[in-house]
Every structure is written in C-alpha cells, then in structure tokens.
C-alpha cells in the first residue's frame, strides 16, 4: 500500500471518525465523565450511601487546610523526585547494555522481570524482605554484626523511603527498555564516525548518544513524575499509608477518606485536587523541557 492510499484514507472524514470514535467513546465514558463526576461529588457532603447534601466548596477549602493532605502531597512529590533522579541510573544501565557487552540480552530480560510481576506480588515479596525479625534484609544486617537493624516499615522516619525502593525497582525494567530501544535506533554510522575521530566510549555516550535520545528522556521524565504523583499500589498493600500516615501519599489518602472513613464527598474533592496538581506539574515540566530544535540523523 502506497503513500497515496493513505492520503485517500485521511481525506475521508467518515473514515477518520470511524477510526477515532471507539477510542474517544472509551475515553469519555471511562475517564472524562468520572473526572467531572468526582469534581461534582467533591461539592457534596456524602458518605457514599445515603443522601447527598450540597455544601459548595467546603470540602475543597477543608482539604487546603488539612495538614494530613499536605503531608501526603509532600510524600507524593518526594516520590516524584526520587523517581526522576533514578531515571539517570536507568539511563546509565541502558547505555551499558546497548554497548554490546557480553550477556546484555540476558541482563535486559532480568531487569524486565519486576515489570512482569503484579504489584501485589511485589508488595508481598518486599514485606517479607523487610520483616524486622525474619526478613532477608535484617538477617543480612545482623550477620554483618548490626545488632539493632531498623524496623523498616514500622519506623515513621524510614518507612516512606523503604517503600520508594521497591517502587523504583518495579519500574526499572520499563524505563531501561525504553532507553535501550531508543539507543538502538541511533545510526551506527554516527558512532563509527565518532570512533574514527578518536572519541572515548564515555564521550560517545555523553556527547552523542544521550543528546540524541534527549526527547525520549524528556518523555520519561513526564511519565515518571506523573506516575509518581498518582501512585497507589505498593503503598496500599505494604502499609496502607501507616503507621499513622507516615507513608501516606495523595492517592492512598483519597482512598482512605472515601472507603475507610466513609467520607466520599471529601475523598472526591481530594481526588479532584490530585488531578489539578498533576495537571499543573505536567504543564510546568513540559514548559521546562520544551526543545526548539528537532533532532535529525
């Protein structure tokens, strides 16, 4: 099929409609309508079961004054920060893997394993690793002569960071795969040319490869930050946001309010604020990372 066939397709409005309609329908029904509804429920005093009572912006005002909400927001942003920083590590791994080292193929598959596990399985795995008296981590620490290793998921000053580790580990394979694919797309001739000019492998990596996949890197920054801000799974399974809110993030706080405290209206308001915060952050990142010049090979 030639290019001109494609043009014929694109000029037929009906066919364009036919192509886009199913996706549009799904997005409207599954995403847009619930979003609007949650904003609307946020205006109500509602326990999720009985009658609703309209209370205007009271839930939103209460949320802005709720120290627990801000604490969970801070935790979400910390997660976003750590996720973004860890991207550099993933990039480094991908650079090494893509430089045709021995066993790269096998390693690439190993890095992908966490992605194939469900979040709940990962959570159960790390709960076992972190177990204060029988866990693998503390057993190793005690073997090295540390008498009182921390109780990772119980200590309010550690628990948040202890959960960050499996979250970052969980997504390593995903980002490494993206970077690996992008790196493989760089024409071999550029690398050859650099080699002939006497560039070291490090120079090739930092001055040629990385700038060439910068666009991909920017996309992953947005992905990881947005993903972190609305993160929920491992936190919910491993600590439910505890102890006493020490590992609460925005999404888990929203869930707790709606489903444990039976405060559906307030929970919806938090959910809507989460959306707004994520939107603002996305716009800011895109502004900051916008590039003027398109890369051409």
């Amino acid at each position: 099929m030639g290019l001109c066939d494609m043009n014929k397709v694109m000029s037929n409005k009906w066919i364009i409609f036919l192509y886009t309609f199913p996706a549009l329908l799904l997005i409207v029904v599954l995403i847009v309508i619930p979003l609007i509804l949650s904003g609307y429920f946020g205006l109500m005093d509602w326990d999720g079961i009985g009658a609703m009572e309209f209370i205007g912006l009271n839930n939103y005002i209460a949320a802005l004054q709720d120290s627990k909400f801000w604490e969970s927001t801070l935790h979400s942003f910390l997660l976003a920060l750590f996720s973004a920083i860890s991207l550099i590590g993933y990039l480094a791994v991908a650079l090494i893997l893509a430089s045709k080292i021995k066993g790269a193929n096998l390693l690439r598959k190993i890095y992908l394993i966490p992605m194939l596990l469900s979040s709940v399985a990962i959570a159960q795995l790390w709960i076992k690793i972190y177990n204060p008296s029988n866990g693998m981590l503390n057993s190793i620490l005690m073997w090295f002569g540390i008498d009182n290793p921390p109780a990772w998921l119980a200590d309010p000053s550690i628990v948040l960071y202890a959960i960050f580790i499996p979250i970052i580990w969980q997504y390593a394979g995903f980002y490494i795969l993206i970077y690996y694919a992008a790196l493989k797309n760089i024409p071999e001739s550029l690398i050859e040319a650099a080699k002939i000019d006497g560039a070291t492998p490090l120079q090739i990596a930092l001055k040629i490869k990385v700038p060439l996949i910068m666009n991909v890197f920017k996309v992953t920054i947005v992905l990881s930050i947005v993903g972190s801000l609305k993160y929920f799974d491992l936190i919910y399974v491993m600590t439910s946001g505890g102890p006493n809110g020490a590992s609460e993030v925005m999404a888990s706080y929203m869930y707790k309010l709606a489903f444990s405290s039976y405060n559906f209206g307030y929970g919806s308001a938090i959910g809507f604020l989460l959306l707004i915060i994520t939107l603002i952050v996305t716009v800011i990142i895109q502004k900051l990372t916008a590039s003027k010049d398109e890369i051409q090979y």
Binding site: A151, A154, D155, P243
Partner: peptide
C-alpha cells in the same frame, strides 16, 4: 515483637 507497627495481624499470628 520488633517492628509491630509495620506488621499485619496475619504476620503476628504466624509468629
């Protein structure tokens, strides 16, 4: 037991 605030009831029971 150590770290009780991070343990679920099921874990305590199994101990």
């Amino acid at each position: 037991v150590q770290g009780f605030n991070g343990l679920a009831d099921e874990e305590a029971k199994s101990m």
